[in-house]
């Protein structure tokens, strides 16, 4: 089976500092791939190039035969990529349901209407998505007053609204209570497998990474130093070196 996202030779310099050096990996449909590494290893830089926020110096990222590097976030979304942010980004003055409706309206290309009532369409679809992420009971609450873990779920529902092929999740569990973290990623894994969505995520909670990821790639100082199944990565000498400073 061919990869949903195929990244080759990704490269980025910041004023002479090599932030990302020749990084290549692939994510398959229904698979969770974790991108890990110490602070400053280049995870965020990689991510921002893939989601259109940062232009790479060189490299290719093929999504269904098209190179998405250098495209705007808008164009990338239209190709079927859903995103969640490290620091949640939702519409705070809108209700949970309205947030998801917004994604659905945009997917349907029906945002231009001046007189139709916003609440009159896509409610059923929105509620179905909210049900899947376990947020249906809170559908009428404002995003601005939600607990952090719940916001992450709303983001997930929004990311699913355009029936994505690929989910990009930047630190999906950052700021969540420990119990919620594994639960959220279990949910993501379930949805990904059921809908055959490829998921690429960065994460610093090792419990989450090793229990939920199908494969792991490890970055250090911009370079890919290891990759493989969780057990392989755990046993890798390079990886232990990076995380323990040669003391383990």
């Amino acid at each position: 089976m061919s990869a949903v996202l195929q990244v080759e030779g990704l490269h980025k310099d910041f004023g002479g500092v090599r932030a990302v050096v020749d990084v290549s990996f692939a994510v398959d449909a229904g698979e969770l791939l974790a991108l890990i590494g110490p602070n400053g290893a280049g995870k965020s830089t990689c991510f921002n190039m893939l989601n259109g926020q940062l232009a790479p110096d060189s490299g290719i990222a093929r999504l269904g035969g098209r190179d998405i590097l250098g495209m705007s976030p808008r164009a990338i979304w239209k190709l079927g990529v859903g995103r969640t942010f490290q620091i949640t980004a939702t519409f705070a003055s809108l209700s949970v349901r309205e947030n998801v409706q917004m994604a659905l309206y945009s997917h349907a290309g029906k945002l231009g209407s001046l007189l139709q009532r916003f609440g009159a369409a896509f409610t059923v679809e929105a509620d179905a998505l909210l049900d899947q992420v376990g947020m249906l009971e809170q559908a009428t609450r404002l995003c601005g007053v939600l607990a952090y873990g719940d916001l992450k779920r709303v983001e997930l529902a929004m990311a699913l609204a355009n029936q994505p092929r690929l989910l990009l999740m930047d630190e999906p569990t950052a700021g969540m209570a420990p119990r919620e973290r594994v639960a959220l990623m279990e949910l993501v894994a379930r949805l990904a497998r059921a809908r055959q969505i490829a998921v690429l995520f960065t994460e610093h909670d090792m419990d989450v990474v090793f229990s939920q990821a199908d494969r792991i790639v490890v970055l250090d100082r911009g370079r890919l130093i290891a990759g493989g199944k969780p057990d392989e990565v755990k046993a890798n000498v390079n990886v232990r070196d990076v995380y323990l400073g040669g003391m383990a």
Binding site: N51, S72, P73, R74, W77, K78, R83, F85, A89, T90, F91, A92, S93, L94, M102, A103, S106, H107, M158, A161, N162
Partner: peptide, 10 residues
């Protein structure tokens, strides 16, 4: 509320 999110929703 969130230009970032809006752009990410196309």
């Amino acid at each position: 509320d969130s230009p970032l999110r809006a752009e990410a929703l196309g």
